[in-house]
Design a protein around this nucleic acid. Structure first.
Length: 104
DNA sequence: GGGGTGACCCAGT
DNA sequence: TACTGGGCCACCC
């Protein structure tokens, strides 16, 4: 799987996150690791920063529930509109965290 | 080739 | 709770 395809795989996965739910950068990396052999939360972060404009990027947060640096306001507003469980400045990961079903 | 930089993460202190 | 150090990997000098 080449770099281009990896980017596509990340964007595809992010598009599947249901409204009001979120995945952490690391979770995205872990899920794709099974398919591509690659896993890097940092890489997922940079991919979202560069190519995340066309997908629901606000549904990808840090593992502790903090919102993407520099876009906290926008992300919070969108998550609130979707009914995501917000806590403080971020989201309640215990309730909002989502993972794709096996074999999807 | 070598070194700095990030929308990260985890374990220690 | 806050900060640190190490690991991570594609990009860009």
């Amino acid at each position: 799987m080449g770099p281009e395809e990896y980017v596509e795989a990340v964007l595809e996965l992010v598009e599947r996150i249901p409204p009001g739910r979120v995945m952490s950068y690391g979770a995205v990396a872990d899920v794709l690791a099974d398919r591509s052999g690659r896993a890097s939360a940092r890489l997922v972060g940079s991919i979202m920063a560069r190519h995340g404009g066309g997908v629901p990027w606000h549904r990808v947060v840090t593992s502790s529930g903090r919102l993407p640096p520099g876009h906290e306001r926008e992300a919070r507003a969108r998550l609130l509109a979707e009914g995501a469980p917000l806590r403080g400045s971020g989201v309640d990961m215990r309730r909002a965290s989502w993972l794709p079903e096996e074999g999807m």
